[in-house]
Simulated scan of single mutants.
Amino acid sequence: MTLIVFDIGNVLLRWDPQAAFRHAFASDAEIDALLDEVGFYDWNYEQDRGRPRAEAVAAIAARWPEHAALMDGYFDRFGLTIRDRIQGSWDIAANLKVRAYRLWALTNFSADTWPAARHLHPDLTTLFEGILVSGHERMVKPDREIFDLLCTRADAAPEQCYFIDDSASNVAGARAAGWQAHHFTGPEGLHADLRDRGLL
């Protein structure tokens, strides 16, 4: 195994989408009601797939015009949603890098919000040899094509890749593409799996 590939959201950075809306609501329950009403997670997934901000806001405005300005503001306030690191994962990645493993990242992320992640956490770009961002490529996990693309970019065979992701469906997608994979639930479990595989 020569390539270790990290997801970013909820593996290295906690993603708290409610944080972008707390200025406008009295409770997270009210925010959750809004997110449910507009189908936030499906809506956001289309940005991960490459839909630009203007089209995303237009899609909201067409059905929920009263929420269009608030949802547009999500892009401006996105940095609030990824402030916190999962430090144990960063420590593991640093340990792997010291051991001379090749590290890449593969993330479902909008091209419009990715600059905020790079600005807030500039060491993402120094930790990894390469980062594949779904919104730039217009393809998403768990689709096979994005795993194949990373193998091509990194010049690695699928069986050489070990993938870490908090989404069970993304882990299944990686395994279907011939990768080994770990379903991330916390740094302790990741460390144990890496140790069991002889990587740490």
Rank of each mutant, 00 (worst) to 15 (best):
N10Q: 09
N10T: 06
N10H: 04
N10V: 08
V11W: 05
V11H: 04
L12F: 08
L13H: 09
L13T: 04
L13D: 06
L13E: 04
R14G: 00
R14C: 00
R14D: 06
W15I: 13
W15D: 05
P17D: 09
Q18A: 15
A19I: 08
A19D: 05
A20Q: 03
F21L: 13
F21S: 02
H23N: 09
A24G: 02
A24K: 12
F25I: 10
A26E: 14
S27L: 14
S27Q: 10
S27G: 11
D28A: 12
D28Q: 10
D28P: 00
A29L: 11
A29I: 09
A29K: 09
A29G: 01
E30P: 02
E30F: 08
E30Q: 15
I31M: 06
D32G: 07
A33N: 01
A33T: 14
A33H: 09
A33Y: 01
A33K: 07
L34A: 02
L34S: 01
L35R: 15
D36R: 12
E37D: 05
V38D: 03
V38F: 07
F40P: 04
F40G: 01
Y41Q: 11
Y41P: 01
Y41R: 14
D42Y: 00
D42K: 10
W43H: 11
W43Y: 07
W43E: 02
N44P: 00
N44A: 14
N44I: 15
Y45L: 02
Y45E: 08
E46R: 15
E46S: 10
E46G: 00
E46W: 04
E46A: 13
